[in-house]
Amino acid sequence: MKSPTAYRAFRVVALAVVVVSLLAPLLWMVAASFKTNVDIYDQSKALVFSPTLENYKKVLRQANYVQFIGNSLWVAFAATVLSLILGVPAAYSMSRFNMKKSALVVLMARVIPGVSLLVPWYYVFSNLRMVGGFTVLILSHMFVSLPLIVYIMMGFFDGLPLELEEAALVDGLTHIGAFRRVTLPLSAPGIATAGILSFIFSWNNFMFALVLSGADTKTLPVAIFDFVGYASIDWGGLMAAATVVTLPIMLIALFVQKYVVSGLTAGATKG
């Protein structure tokens, strides 16, 4: 790249290739969800077709997806809120008191394969006749959410200056009072980041719900998987179902892009 202009032209082309190859498959999925199955099989109707809402009607009315959307929302919401309640104070202690070993124990959960916990959970909870209920499902999702939140919030608290808390102590607040009235309000961006990431990961989680959910507590990813259990695949319906689960998350990411990126890259640039 000798001249800046040549590099600029190269960069525009390269970025266009990147954006198209990342977005085209997703657009293809959304397009197929508006096609009849006849049109999906017809290569000449790849881009030009008369859109139909039949697939969505089928998915939302017949296939019970309204209930699955509710289940997914409830599980992701509950797992996130409970993990924040447990995780934010823990991350604060681990950051302020430099509890390296304790932090390592919590963060190990990011490394452990989920199946190795699913087996004992399944043993215990099926003997307690709790498999298929929301409680077990929410607890299992907290296994992903809690370490994620502790990890993100520890990084956040590490970067928060001590002086503000010390000033609050001088003003007569207790340590816990200073945490509640000074540190927590200042941590709002970090909590938002951790909460959004936890919600996304829980919404997308498949394996735990595959084993631990029942007919009434099924979440969206499992519902989509069950869609292909039959002899021939209803592509239109399947793509509508895939769009229903993916679109809300992509919209969230679109509006709170900054938080999602800072959560995903948390801790990446520390030495």
Binding site: L15, V18, V19, L22, L23, P25, L26, W28, M29, A32, I40, I200, W203, N204, F206, L220, P221, I224, F225, F227, V228, I233, W235, L238, M239, A241, A242, T243, V245, T246, I249, M250, I252, A253, L254, Q257, V260, V261, L264
Partner: peptide, 26 residues
């Protein structure tokens, strides 16, 4: 640049099971 970054974010927040189904069709 902001829009390119949004585009880059889309695959990685998409639900993996849905992504699998999408590629099954493609």
């Amino acid at each position: 640049q902001r829009w390119v970054r949004v585009a880059i974010l889309m695959p990685l927040v998409a639900t993996p099971v849905a992504v699998g189904m999408m590629w099954r069709l493609i």
